[in-house]
Design a protein around this nucleic acid. Structure first.
Length: 266
DNA sequence: ATTGTGGCCTGCCCGC
DNA sequence: TGCGGGCAGGCCACAA
């Protein structure tokens, strides 16, 4: 799960790990590193230094290291952050919902006795020193209308290339950073737009989609996360649209399981 | 260049 | 009761 709302909570928690000298580094799972980030390199990058800022772009957590390379943390589907024994979330929807030492993939201990660790049962997350932040599109939490217009624009580079479905464009992290499968379904449902839509949006539809992005993120953040949308309880084979009662359709769009209402999403 | 597909990885849940 | 298979999905490699 962790989508942008959850990673933002991780980021806020990570601020408690700032300005504390690193005493020890364990990268318990060597395969957790990506892009050449190995246990020795991670250790060399962090030992004796401090984190000086906790930033986020989309679902990527960025921990700036004073006089060192930024550490990027991706949480995949079941990743969580724990600082001084405190978790940012009570439970991850697709995780087992419990903490187990065997799922700790990396741990950093500070000289003051505290620590920060990454917990990830499914191991879809990763650590990467100096990740390429610029590959990510504009952050969904501060997305402007014109940024969204550019992100969902339908301009195939070649005539033989099909236009990707609207949902796939919305979930493409290079177009907009931070929207995952659950949020995408909720946003499109609220906007009344067909996830498979490939024709250009009218200006009115674009404005509606932008409002939906902002309202959905704001509201679900207040409620406690990506899984608190209206559509969530109906994400099963016999689910019904909370708006009009129509039977929801379950399709694969952009390679992802998609629930949507054929009665009001066009 | 862009879009589409399969695979990674583990736990859960269903049906036999 | 136990077991196999399908499923969940963020992200990447690779194919088209």
């Amino acid at each position: 799960m962790p989508e942008i709302l959850e990673v933002e909570r991780y980021r806020a928690l990570a601020e408690q790990a700032l300005d504390r000298p690193v005493a020890r580094v364990w990268m318990i799972d060597a395969r957790y590193g990506r892009g050449g980030t190995t246990p020795p390199r991670l250790r060399a990058a962090l030992l004796g230094r401090t984190f000086e800022a906790a930033r986020r772009r989309g679902k990527l957590l960025l921990l700036d290291v004073k006089d060192g390379p930024t550490l990027g943390v991706r949480f995949g589907m079941t990743g969580g952050l724990v600082v001084d024994g405190r978790e940012a979330l009570d439970r991850l929807r697709y995780g087992p919902g419990v903490f187990d030492d065997k799922w700790v993939r990396a741990r950093v201990a500070f000289t003051d006795g505290g620590s920060v660790l990454v917990h990830d049962p499914r191991r879809f997350g990763s650590l990467q020193l100096a990740p390429d932040e610029e590959r990510l599109g504009p952050d969904a939490l501060s997305l402007t209308r014109s940024q969204l217009r550019g992100a969902v624009a339908t301009v195939p580079a070649r005539t033989y290339a099909a236009v990707a479905p609207l949902k796939a464009r919305l979930m493409d992290q290079e177009r907009v950073a931070g929207i995952g499968n659950l949020l995408a379904d909720e946003i499109l449902w609220r906007a009344g737009l067909d996830p498979e839509r490939r024709t250009p949006l009218t200006e009115e539809e674009l404005v509606g989609l932008h409002r939906s992005v902002r309202a959905t993120l704001r509201q679900l953040a207040r409620r406690g996360g990506s899984h608190t949308g209206e559509l969530m309880e109906e994400r099963h084979p016999s689910g019904r649209c909370p708006l009009d009662g129509a039977a929801l359709r379950r399709d694969t769009v952009g390679g992802r399981t998609t629930f949507w209402c054929p009665a009001h999403q066009h």
